[in-house]
């Protein structure tokens, strides 16, 4: 007999080695997430995917599925708290969605809509961060970085490079690139790299492609992020 867990009362099968996130996504159950993409080693840092496993909070993207686990996902408490965690990500950086090229394609924004986030709730930090437009084809707007490390992992695990790393401690966490000048133009990144396309927010953008898809026709303009994630990420799984 195959092993199962339950998520909000629904029985879900899993295979040995799968995380709760893997099992859920395969079964068509969406658990909000930002720092996780199935093609890379889970990071477990954004904490948006927090679920209650047998009464304890765990990160679904890193926590192994084990036979008989009773997982809670869509409770009011978890949804409310995920919203607050998302609000934390907003106030920590500078996210002016209406003026961001990523609007409508941004996972941070889409998760916020999904969680019914209507305000920032917390005071804004207004950090002083830079824009690195030095590279001919790729740019980084540090104002929008949420430290998910997807670009770090994509560069290492898919591109076989080491273009990015997260440096600093605490609230001073920041993204650095692999060049003595500290500028993207002096790294070996290519616009075709996976790392240049993985950013869930508008922090890493490809130049001269802006607004090619008009606002109103973008990924999350007509579909919620849960539906998009289940359609696209599940397909990618096990590729």
């Amino acid at each position: 007999m195959s092993k199962t867990i339950t998520i909000d009362g629904k029985t879900i099968p899993f295979e040995e080695g799968q995380t709760i996130m893997d099992a859920a996504m395969a079964a068509g159950v969406y658990i909000p997430h930002l720092c996780h993409q199935p093609e890379f080693t889970p990071h477990g840092s954004c904490k948006l995917c927090t679920v209650k496993v047998n009464g304890r909070n765990c990160s679904a993207c890193t926590y192994p599925a084990m036979d008989g686990q009773d997982v809670l996902n869509e409770t009011k408490e978890l949804v409310d708290d995920r919203k607050k965690i998302t609000q934390m990500l907003f106030v920590e950086g500078n996210h002016f969605c209406p003026s961001c090229e990523k609007t409508g394609n941004c996972q941070l924004q889409a998760v916020a809509y999904h969680l019914n986030m209507l305000d920032n709730h917390f005071p804004l930090f207004y950090p002083d961060r830079e824009v690195d437009a030095s590279h001919a084809e790729v740019m980084i707007d540090h104002n929008r970085c949420i430290f998910c490390a997807l670009c770090v992992r994509a560069s290492q695990q898919t591109d076989g490079k080491d273009v990015f790393t997260l440096s600093g401690r605490g609230i001073h966490k920041h993204l650095v690139v692999n060049a003595q000048s500290g500028l993207l133009k002096d790294t070996d990144i290519d616009a075709t790299d996976r790392a240049a396309h993985i950013c869930p927010t508008g922090a890493i953008l490809i130049k001269r492609t802006g607004y090619q898809v008009p606002i109103g026709e973008r990924i999350y303009d007509h579909k919620q992020i849960d539906q998009v994630a289940l359609e696209t990420e599940h397909l990618k799984h096990g590729e």
Binding site: S45, L48, I85, M88, E92, F147, G168, I171
Partner: peptide
């Protein structure tokens, strides 16, 4: 350490 959102922020 700044790794996770709830503690960092």
């Amino acid at each position: 350490c700044g790794f996770c959102t709830p503690c960092r922020v």
